[in-house]
């Protein structure tokens, strides 16, 4: 496969959030600001990348019948590592993302990459895929977070550009759905062209 294409597919063409619609729970829950979305995105990206690497390396060692439990153990370990490291070194972000970090384990997107890609491809391809898809996920969450932050708090990455409150609804759960819905529509329109 063309590695460049392999890398870029995660942004729009096979964007995990907008097109594949995977990992919507953290996408909706953590994206109250662009920074939070980005943090969550990078955390997930780290897990995807690392689990892709490990799964790709051990793919022949693991018998088929136990591959899912093995992958889950691997993913869970990396998630725990992310959780601990974040709590230790980025307490503020950890506070914000809190509950959603452990939930990366059940993010279908992560297991999906391990199962659908890394377990069948070479190490290099898996690294490229993990990075590309992870960046795509980060891109989606950051975009969603930015949209919600701009509309909801009149700010972007914490920088207030208009005084006063924005449209609160975008900070709340319903706003997450509205913003995600319109971004999905937009991504589909771009994909069609």
């Amino acid at each position: 496969m063309d590695q460049a294409k392999n890398f870029t597919k995660g942004f729009i063409r096979e964007n995990p959030v907008f097109i594949l619609m995977l990992g919507l729970c953290p996408a909706l829950g953590t994206t109250t600001s662009a920074f939070n979305g980005m943090g969550m995105g990078f955390a997930t990206m780290f897990v995807v990348l690392m689990s892709n690497i490990v799964v790709s390396l051990i793919k022949n060692f693991v018998p088929n019948k136990v591959r899912i439990p093995c992958y889950i153990v691997i993913i869970a370990s990396f998630v725990t590592i992310v959780d601990l490291v974040m709590a230790g070194f980025m307490p503020a972000l950890h506070e914000q993302l809190g509950l959603f970090i452990p939930l990366i384990v059940v993010n279908c997107f992560v297991l999906g990459r391990a199962e659908a890609f890394a377990s069948k491809n070479t190490l290099l391809s898996s690294v490229i895929d993990g990075t590309g898809m992870g960046l795509g996920f980060t891109f989606a969450l950051t975009l969603l977070g930015a949209a919600r932050e701009i509309l909801g708090s009149n700010a972007i990455f914490g920088l207030q550009f208009i005084e006063g409150d924005g449209m609160l609804v975008f900070i709340l759960a319903p706003g997450a759905f509205i913003a995600l819905g319109y971004l999905i529509a937009l991504a589909n329109k771009l994909n069609k062209q």
């Binding site: 409150d165 924005g166 449209m167 609160l168 609804v169």
Partner: peptide
């Protein structure tokens, strides 16, 4: 309702 949730004040 959108306005009500967005601009409660």
């Amino acid at each position: 309702v959108f306005l009500f949730i967005s601009f409660p004040v």
